[in-house]
């Protein structure tokens, strides 16, 4: 600006130059670590996905899209992919429906803060611990049932083999919803708390029902946050691993392929395998994970796009 030639302006101009000199020493350590440990390995994974490679001791051999073609015909991969999609979609729908229900009820309920805090806690518990915990709660063993079957039998229902391969994916989905809901309730409630109360008062005067208030006030005014929460959910659900591994499997080695997710697939084909590892295939599956996240996030952003709201 030609107008600002006062002393302060010039002083801060010189200061700005000195500040800019600080940029690289400040930024470089972090970005170096980031590039070396995250960016380069990601690119390497993409490259290795095009190779046939058994792992350490073997030499990667370029095979083009052969891995991906093989993935398509692999039962294990098909289960992994569909299960992962199921966790993202069914788990997501369940978690968000639950979170919406809670926002409707919690908005003007006493003790709401306490409830939120209680529900949030599972989010800072290690998934592996949650998994073990659930594996004991859900155990099926006539006469010495886990907590869940104990309750079922005590009300006269039949015990269920929760952890059997054909059930376990839905059981894990339930556990996932239970454990994550607190996080999304908190995010959505924080957004709801920012909505000015007089909008709800006006809706009261209009005679809106709780559903109408949700539909016409809460939902449109938290839309942005819901979009971000959806992205966070997708990112989190794509890499689901420990919960499945512990709940569906015998412990140290992989569960039956019917229960696999992409995360389990990558682990099983590389570090967790009983037979010969296939690092090339694992890398290809990892690339699928990235693609899945990217596609879903872009899709979600497009679906949720809308003008920003100012109160």
């Amino acid at each position: 600006m030609p107008g600002s030639t006062d002393v302060g302006g010039r002083a801060s101009g010189a200061h700005l130059v000195r500040k800019k000199r600080l940029f690289f020493p400040f930024f470089l350590p972090a970005v170096t670590l980031y590039v070396v440990f995250l960016v380069v390995p990601t690119l390497a994974t993409v490259a290795l996905g095009f190779t046939s490679w058994a792992g350490a001791g073997d030499t990667p051999e370029f095979t083009g899209f052969a891995n991906y073609v093989e993935l398509l015909s692999s039962d294990a991969f098909r289960y992994s992919f569909l299960n992962t999609l199921l966790y993202i979609v069914a788990g997501g729908v369940g978690t968000f429906l639950l979170a919406f229900l809670f926002t409707m009820v919690l908005r003007d309920m006493r003790g709401g803060k306490l409830i939120r805090a209680i529900l949030f806690f599972p989010n800072i518990v290690a998934p592996v611990a949650l998994g073990m915990f659930f594996s004991i709660v859900l155990i099926y063993r006539p006469n010495r049932q886990g907590l869940a079957n104990h309750l079922l039998e005590s009300v006269g229902l039949d015990a269920v083999k929760f952890l059997q391969a054909e059930n376990v994916t839905w059981v894990v989905t339930g556990c996932l919803i239970w454990a994550s809901s607190g996080f999304y309730i908190t995010i959505l409630m924080a957004a709801v708390d920012r909505i000015p109360p007089y909008l709800y008062e006006d809706a009261d005067i209009a005679g809106a029902t709780p559903w109408q208030k949700f539909r016409h006030v809460t939902l449109p005014l938290t839309w942005d946050v819901i979009g971000v929460a959806g992205v966070l959910w997708t990112i989190g659900a794509v890499k689901i691993f420990e919960l499945v591994f512990v709940l569906a499997g015998p412990g140290t080695y992989s569960p039956p392929i019917r229960a696999w997710t992409l995360g389990v697939y990558v682990f099983d084909r590389s570090f967790g395998t009983q037979g010969t590892p296939e690092y090339g295939m694992a890398c290809a599956a990892a690339v699928v994970m990235i693609l899945l996240v990217s596609v879903l996030v872009v899709l979600l952003r497009r679906l949720m796009r809308r003008d920003t709201i100012q109160f």
Binding site: P196, Y198, E201, A206, H216, L221, W223, I309
Partner: peptide, 26 residues
């Protein structure tokens, strides 16, 4: 009918939708 100090207009609705909101609910 109430006119609020901060007007309580719904930021995501057009003027027409704002004015008609109560009628829509009714």
């Amino acid at each position: 009918a109430m006119v609020f100090q901060n007007y309580a207009l719904y930021p995501h609705m057009t003027v027409a939708d704002n004015i008609g909101f109560h009628l829509k609910i009714a």
